[in-house]
Simulated scan of single mutants.
Amino acid sequence: MTHKLYYDSAYTREWHTRITGKMDKEDGLYVTLAETAFYPHGGGQPCDLGQIGGVDVLDVISEGDEVWHKVERALEQEEVDCRIDWERRFDHMQHHTGQHLLSAVTLKLADAMTLSFHLGTDYATIDVDSAELGTEQIAAIELEANTQIYRNARIAASWVTAEEAARLPLVKQPSVTENIRIVEMEGVEYNACGGTHVASTGEIGIIKILKTERVKGSTRIYFKCGFRALEEFGAVQRVTQAISAKLKTGRDELLERLDKLEAEQKQLQAEISAVKAANDTYFAQELLAQRQGLIIAQVFEDKSVKDMQSLATKLTAEHEGIVLFVSRSEAKVVLAQKGQPHWACGAFFKGNLGAYQGKGGGSDSIAQAGFPSVDEALAFFEFTRDQLGHH
């Protein structure tokens, strides 16, 4: 049986011990130790990493009373010095304790029980039993959680019997009936938990709620604690400063400046659309004057597929015939028709695009497709024009 040092103290970083077992599994070599401070996967908390005898620990799992450590390569010595990746461990301690605090406050202020906890490399989440949490509720939860951090409440763990656990105001009664570990956050909650935690709420540093989203009738709260929250604040500040410098506007005036830019952009886009419409009218007349029979075929250097669709629609709305366009810059083709029942554009594309690696489709009256290269787009354009000529 492995003696679990992480239950004695979550702050153990280095220790000397002996290897008590070795096992070759499908995914690698595992060893057990007489004593270990490496916390295994469990309760939403990832495992610890570090080194055993100078060899990297890649994974840690718990099987019964033993803790198995996946190591990068075989260890020859029996006596080994072990070292925890402390930065990773302390990050996990901050976030696991932060989760306890955030869950307790959310239950208190929003009557929403935590359903699950996930601690990832980028952020942590809790799913709570509430269909929706408003902006004011989230702000109140965040403020209260950080108030409890500043209070620096003591956090302690103890082992109790099932009878003793039943007398405690636990958030949720544990499923196990013996060796029950209780984590008490003084003045906040009692919780049955086997994870690693900081010694007081002050060591959480800060809790910052990033966002919320609805997930199958519950609400998922994204958050960061401690050093991750500090890094998040730094990243946001750098982006804000860069935007302020680019717009030559103070932070407090950024939203007003962005609203003004958005309004200017909409006005500019409206003016551009008007100019494009006028140009399309003149260009349509030019294309109609140059067409051969009922067919208009044109190669564009840099026209967008949206603009080609608009021009084709304008031409076929006012005149019967077939319009075929290709854009070199986008490697896309547009085909449109009016009054030509034997030329269903979508059906023609469906039957012929595959030979040119094109993807697209459309209706009887208009279709569009994209191609991996301009050469394939031009080849399909020439093929289509040839087919039109035969008909």
Rank of each mutant, 00 (worst) to 15 (best):
G205Y: 08
P341F: 09
D364C: 04
S103H: 02
I221E: 05
A124M: 14
E256P: 07
L258V: 15
R385M: 05
V374M: 04
D280Y: 08
H197K: 03
S327F: 02
A242F: 01
E136M: 11
L261V: 01
Q309E: 14
L311R: 10
L143W: 13
T12A: 04
K70P: 03
C345I: 10
A297E: 04
L210V: 13
Q337I: 03
A278L: 06
Y282Q: 04
L335Y: 11
M93C: 05
T97V: 05
A140P: 07
L143C: 12
V236R: 14
N179C: 01
L353P: 09
R154K: 15
K266T: 02
K303R: 15
V333E: 08
N191Y: 00
A153W: 00
A104V: 05
L58Q: 07
L254P: 01
L170H: 00
T384H: 00
L5E: 06
R167V: 04
Q368I: 09
E301M: 06
A297W: 00
R18E: 14
L107W: 04
A312P: 10
V57W: 01
V323W: 07
F117R: 13
A192Y: 00
Q265R: 13
H118D: 12
A263S: 09
L353D: 07
R181P: 10
E144H: 03
T313M: 13
H41D: 14
Y11F: 15
K25V: 10
C345V: 07
A235K: 15
I141E: 08
C47V: 04
M23W: 07
A377S: 12
S327D: 01
K276L: 03
R181I: 09
D307R: 13
R154Q: 15
K359I: 11
A297R: 03
D129R: 13
A104I: 01
L49G: 11
T2D: 00
D386T: 14
P372S: 09
D65R: 10
E231K: 13
K216S: 14
R328K: 15
A110F: 04
T384E: 00
T106H: 11
T249K: 02
K314D: 11
H319P: 08
D56T: 05
I206R: 09
D56L: 06
F380W: 06
H391D: 03
I84S: 01
G361Q: 10
Q173L: 01
Q292H: 01
G43D: 02
I138L: 15
E253G: 03
K306N: 15
A140M: 09
M308Q: 13
V80I: 15
T36F: 05
H96V: 14
L315C: 11
T135S: 12
T316E: 11
N191K: 01
I207H: 12
A165V: 01
E271R: 03
S244V: 05
L294S: 10
L261T: 00
K70H: 07
T177A: 08
M308T: 12
M93V: 02
V67D: 12
A347C: 02
M308F: 12
I155F: 01
E256H: 13
Y11H: 12
T219F: 05
M113V: 08
I296A: 05
E264F: 00
D48K: 00
G362L: 08
G53H: 04
V128E: 04
Q337Y: 03
E142S: 06
V67W: 11
S9A: 07
Q94G: 01
K22N: 09
